Computed example of a mutant assay.
Amino acid sequence: MAQMLHCTVNGTLVERMVEDDTTLLTFLREELGLTGTKEGCGEGDCGACTVLVDDTSVNSCLFLALLAEGRSITTIEGIEQDGELSDIQQAFIDHGAIQCGFCSPGMIVSVSHLLNQNPEPSEEEIRRGMSGNLCRCTGYQQMVEAVQEVAAHRKTEKQSEKAILI
């Protein structure tokens, strides 16, 4: 049975009829055309489908779309800033942390969540924050280095902003 879903996706209000058994992944890809979110395993193990729901990281392949009623969803398409790659996306490119690219959207969304929760994570915290995302192409080290660079750059920017205000 279909029900009306009202939610915000990447800052845009969305209203659509959705079947009870439709996953958020299917809704995003098939109803909204947001194909950056990938289906890897379909069982919540690989993290390729990671999105943020009210700033909480979820596997969209397991999350029913109707559970997003009234909530805010951020996909990889919402991570970019004003049509430009986010600092996380650019750092992944700069560090060679993207090879085939299939896991990258989920990984970048997970890293975005991590840095929002913990702006200065240790290497161990970065690895733990990415642990729900599997990558078959890299050894993860380039990803860790990319996150460390972003965290350090953001810290420097924040310190510069404080100095200007003083």
Rank of each mutant, 00 (worst) to 15 (best):
I88F: 04
I88N: 03
I88A: 02
Q89W: 04
Q89R: 03
Q89S: 02
Q90A: 14
A91E: 04
F92Q: 08
F92I: 04
F92G: 02
I93Q: 03
I93N: 01
H95W: 09
H95V: 01
H95E: 15
G96Q: 02
G96F: 05
G96W: 00
A97D: 07
A97T: 12
A97L: 13
I98T: 02
Q99H: 13
Q99S: 14
Q99F: 02
Q99D: 09
Q99L: 10
C100K: 07
C100F: 09
G101I: 01
F102P: 06
F102H: 15
C103Y: 09
S104D: 06
S104G: 04
S104K: 06
S104I: 01
P105E: 07
P105M: 03
G106S: 15
M107F: 06
M107P: 07
M107C: 14
M107A: 10
I108C: 12
I108G: 06
I108Q: 10
V109L: 12
V111I: 11
S112D: 13
H113G: 03
L114N: 07
L115V: 00
N116I: 04
Q117K: 15
Q117F: 03
Q117G: 12
Q117Y: 08
N118F: 00
N118M: 15
N118V: 08
E120N: 15
P121T: 10
P121W: 05
S122K: 10
S122F: 06
E123H: 13
E123T: 10
E124N: 07
E124A: 15
E124T: 13
E124R: 11
E125A: 15
E125S: 13
E125P: 12
E125L: 12
E125N: 10
I126A: 04
I126L: 12
R127F: 14
R127L: 09
M130G: 07
S131L: 12
G132Y: 13
G132H: 15
G132A: 10
N133C: 03
L134Y: 09
R136Q: 13
C137T: 02
C137V: 11
C137Q: 08
C137S: 01
G139V: 02
G139W: 04
Y140Q: 14
Y140H: 05
Y140L: 00
Q141W: 02
Q141P: 00
Q141E: 14
Q142W: 06
M143F: 01
M143D: 02
M143S: 06
M143Q: 05
V144K: 01
E145W: 04
E145C: 03
A146V: 07
E149G: 02
V150I: 11
V150P: 01
A151K: 03
A151F: 02
A152G: 04
A152T: 11
A152C: 10
H153P: 00
R154Q: 09
K155F: 07
K155D: 00
K155R: 12
K158C: 00
Q159C: 01
Q159H: 14
Q159N: 15
